[in-house]
Design a binder for these strands. Sequence first.
DNA 1: CCAAAAGTGTTTTAAGTACACCCATGG
DNA 2: CCATGGGTGTACTTAAAACACTTTTGG
Lengths: 228, 228
Amino acid sequence: MKLVNQRSTELKVIYGPALAVDAVLFTIDKDELKILLIKINSGPYKNKWAFPGGLAQTKETLDETAKRVLFQKTNIDNVHLEQLYSFSDLKRDVRGRVVSVAYFALVNNPYNFKIKTTSYYSEISWWSVKNLPPMAFDHQKIVNYAFERLKSKIEYTNIVYSLLPEEFTLTELQNVYEIILDKKLDKRNFRKKMTSLDLIKKTGNKRKGEVHRPAELFCFNRRKLVFL
Amino acid sequence: MKLVNQRSTELKVIYGPALAVDAVLFTIDKDELKILLIKINSGPYKNKWAFPGGLAQTKETLDETAKRVLFQKTNIDNVHLEQLYSFSDLKRDVRGRVVSVAYFALVNNPYNFKIKTTSYYSEISWWSVKNLPPMAFDHQKIVNYAFERLKSKIEYTNIVYSLLPEEFTLTELQNVYEIILDKKLDKRNFRKKMTSLDLIKKTGNKRKGEVHRPAELFCFNRRKLVFL
DNA sequence: CCAAAAGTGTTTTAAGTACACCCATGG
DNA sequence: CCATGGGTGTACTTAAAACACTTTTGG
């Protein structure tokens, strides 16, 4: 492809990096924060794990690229995807010069995805962020960045809605916060805060059938990103 | 240039967007927050104004690209440059498909830059963010984003150090905050807060020669980014 | 002695933290 | 009736906000 020097009127042929998107997909499963990784089974990154990703195409925005690669590789659709940062270390991909725009997304577990296997990708699985396998490219760096963003973002937005089902108990909500922040929170203070913010409301239903007092069920007022 | 499908071992020739960097440079001048713009004098964006920017080269990181294009276009060097966001609207540059990674930077005014004029760029000047000229590309969108980032970042970091000389009075520091936030701050509360944070210290010198009580001069403990 | 900006403390309000017991259910 | 997690309120601490007068200098 000829890249044109777009910033002048003379068309000079120049060379530039390729542009890719990687999607860091988080979920909570069995009281652990996990990310979705795909195992690479050939080439220089053989037996290393990577995020679902792919090259940006000309006729799509990066948001669309992120959505597309996630869907193509995992069948996952309709999730909140958010741009994180662009990574451009010279050696991040030893096979060639690729700049990657990282995105992150959150899904409610268990998510019914199907891996589309190829000769290049075979295995796909969720990994606890506390116990990650050997990562391809600079993906360890990207996951660290994504994890920090997630931790700070749950403090001033409602994004955890994506990690929860439609209805949930306050204890379940608190668990999500505790798992992400990796620390215990005070039950009374947590409930006071959550009910004072205008993010959730009672559905009137209760979680019954367990060997203790039934819990009130709540839902988010809006299932889209809200800042406090 | 042939772009290779970097995410597989088979080398497929694909086409992707070109990658550029744009730098939003802020300063404070005459009690106004200003940004540096260059006037385009030919092509579809003739008579519109744009940030210093340029295409990313293969053998440099985006941070290096940002530093380079800023230096090449303005001779400005050694400023704090920080990645903002990647902009990828399909129609952001009508001449072709270019994704731009925006950076922002802050300089202490007056900065002694020299524009390097070409047939494409001629005029360069500072514009108040409250009164911007017609902007090229999607640069109006980028400046809005950068401005929001700046406003929030001065609340939890020391970045304003780049907008101030080595030594400054607390009133001068407060002015910087008031101009960026576009609101008056309480003098006593501001000073209490600033002196309680461990960001600045007295130099022992005073600003003399003015028709009022001389002001204590302060400097930042560290002239690099610190989070609170 | 006047004008101009520098400098300085206290009170009030809001938000966050710490902390312990009773409740409703299923088995 | 017992084990289990659900649900609740008050006191303390810390940070932010409101607010007005005295000081030092040059002219």
